[in-house]
Simulated scan of single mutants.
Amino acid sequence: MKQRVKNIYYLAKAQVTLKELKSKIYEAVALPAGAEIMSIDVEVLEPAVTATKLDLGLKVGKDYSKEAFGNDLNLSAKANHKSSVVTSTKLGGVVTLEFDQKPTGGEVVVRVAYFCPSEILTEF
Rank of each mutant, 00 (worst) to 15 (best):
residue 29 V to K: 10
residue 30 A to P: 14
residue 33 A to D: 13
residue 33 A to E: 13
residue 34 G to I: 08
residue 34 G to E: 01
residue 35 A to K: 07
residue 35 A to L: 05
residue 35 A to Y: 07
residue 37 I to P: 01
residue 38 M to Y: 07
residue 39 S to D: 10
residue 41 D to T: 15
residue 42 V to S: 04
residue 43 E to K: 07
residue 43 E to A: 06
residue 45 L to M: 07
residue 45 L to T: 06
residue 46 E to G: 03
residue 46 E to H: 08
residue 46 E to F: 01
residue 47 P to K: 14
residue 47 P to R: 08
residue 47 P to N: 09
residue 48 A to C: 00
residue 48 A to V: 07
residue 48 A to G: 06
residue 49 V to F: 06
residue 49 V to L: 09
residue 50 T to N: 14
residue 50 T to L: 11
residue 52 T to S: 05
residue 52 T to E: 04
residue 53 K to I: 05
residue 53 K to M: 02
residue 54 L to H: 02
residue 56 L to T: 02
residue 57 G to E: 00
residue 57 G to V: 00
residue 57 G to A: 02
residue 58 L to K: 01
residue 58 L to D: 04
residue 58 L to I: 04
residue 58 L to Q: 05
residue 59 K to I: 03
residue 60 V to W: 06
residue 60 V to Y: 05
residue 61 G to D: 02
residue 63 D to K: 15
residue 65 S to L: 11
residue 65 S to P: 11
residue 66 K to E: 13
residue 66 K to L: 12
residue 67 E to K: 12
residue 67 E to H: 03
residue 68 A to I: 04
residue 68 A to W: 07
residue 68 A to Y: 10
residue 69 F to G: 02
residue 69 F to K: 05
residue 70 G to R: 00
residue 70 G to F: 00
residue 71 N to G: 14
residue 71 N to F: 09
residue 71 N to H: 11
residue 72 D to C: 07
residue 72 D to W: 10
residue 72 D to M: 08
residue 72 D to I: 03
residue 72 D to R: 10
residue 72 D to N: 12
residue 73 L to C: 01
residue 73 L to Q: 01
residue 73 L to K: 03
residue 74 N to C: 09
residue 76 S to Y: 12
residue 77 A to G: 02
residue 78 K to T: 09
residue 79 A to S: 13
residue 79 A to P: 05
residue 80 N to R: 13
residue 81 H to G: 05
residue 82 K to R: 06
residue 82 K to H: 00
residue 83 S to L: 07
residue 83 S to K: 10
residue 85 V to T: 14
residue 85 V to G: 04
residue 86 V to I: 13
residue 86 V to A: 06
residue 88 S to A: 15
residue 89 T to Q: 11
residue 89 T to L: 12
residue 89 T to C: 15
residue 90 K to C: 13
residue 90 K to E: 14
residue 90 K to A: 15
residue 90 K to H: 14
residue 91 L to C: 12
residue 91 L to A: 15
residue 91 L to R: 13
residue 92 G to H: 09
residue 92 G to T: 08
residue 93 G to C: 09
residue 93 G to M: 09
residue 95 V to R: 02
residue 96 T to N: 01
residue 99 F to V: 11
residue 99 F to K: 08
residue 101 Q to K: 15
residue 101 Q to V: 14
residue 101 Q to D: 11
residue 102 K to P: 04
residue 102 K to T: 09
residue 103 P to R: 03
residue 103 P to F: 03
